[in-house]
């Protein structure tokens, strides 16, 4: 039984990667979108407004501030929308091949979410090449810390995407619901503006947004060794990762039952 479960998780993960590497356009989109956000939106906002900076007047550039947030955004979007492949599989019949296999269905969700986690961690690594644009020079060690953070956030949100897609019939339905979730998650995550300068009611919403902790974990990793940027952090990396892990447990509970009732 255990062997069969591990094989299932492995082969579903493997297929996810093969499909990803064969689709060249996905690569382009994955890098283009964050680059545009960083250069156009980031630079635009930075010059339109005087960034009121961190408490204590730490001299942090706005681009430096949003850079980890942009990585968080890419991870969020990529992992959430990866769930759409389930709807494609349903449409093209391949899902049936998976559902009639003599394997527990939760293993299918786990394999898929691990695949998504792997892909977004690669994506996070690639986005590190944009760091000079944000006025940062990163070390290899930083890169190695970003990798598991992206993987964990991607795994958790990937399962959320799976739990939605597994219960949806149509592409449009999935897009509607996942947009409805990703947009507020992104806006309230502290990716674009800091929590401490937001009004009280907004802060409350930001505190309950799980992505807030993912972005804060990325800031922890990326700002390591930059004393003036430390004021932008809210929690320790351990605290952030604990919250994200808790979130992953919740999404796993819903994602792992996504295929249970269907045929």
């Amino acid at each position: 039984m255990l062997e069969s479960v591990l094989k299932t998780i492995y082969v579903i993960w493997y297929r996810e990667l093969i499909r990803f590497f064969r689709e060249k356009s996905q690569w382009a989109g994955m890098i283009m979108q964050p680059t545009l956000y960083l250069t156009f939106v980031g630079t635009g906002i930075a010059s339109a407004m005087t960034f009121r900076q961190a408490p204590g007047g730490a001299p942090v550039n706005y681009l430096t501030f949003i850079y980890p947030g942009i990585i968080g955004m890419s991870v969020l979007f990529t992992s959430m929308f990866s769930g759409i492949s389930i709807i494609w599989d349903r449409e093209f019949g391949f899902l049936k091949e998976i559902l009639v296999a003599p394997v527990p269905r939760w293993a299918i969700s786990v394999g898929k979410a691990l695949g998504i986690g792997t892909i977004v961690s690669l994506q996070g690594m690639i986005l590190l090449i944009l760091s000079p644009l944000a006025g940062l020079s990163l070390t290899l060690w930083t890169g190695l810390k970003v990798l598991p953070i992206c993987a964990l956030v991607g795994f958790a949100i990937g399962l959320l995407g799976i739990s939605i897609a597994g219960r949806m019939e149509s592409m449009q339905g999935f897009q509607l619901i996942s947009n409805f979730l990703t947009m507020p998650m992104f806006f309230l995550s502290g990716a674009m503006f800091p929590l401490h300068s937001a009004p009280q009611w907004l802060q409350v919403l930001m505190v309950i947004d799980p992505l807030t902790y993912g972005v804060d974990a990325l800031r922890n990793a990326i700002y390591a060794g930059i004393p003036e940027a430390q004021a932008m952090l809210q929690h320790s990396i351990a605290y952030d990762l604990s919250i994200v892990s808790l979130f992953a447990i919740v999404t796993a509970a819903t994602g792992m039952t996504a295929f249970n009732r269907q045929g």
């Binding site: 094989k7 299932t8 492995y10 499909r19 998976i98 003599p102």
Partner: peptide, 20 residues
């Protein structure tokens, strides 16, 4: 019910793994 983005062999491999 094949994955048309995979090769014939990969489709078989996938199946073989699922069926242990």
């Amino acid at each position: 019910s094949l994955d048309d983005r995979l090769t014939a062999e990969e489709n078989l491999y996938f199946h073989g793994m699922l069926y242990n």
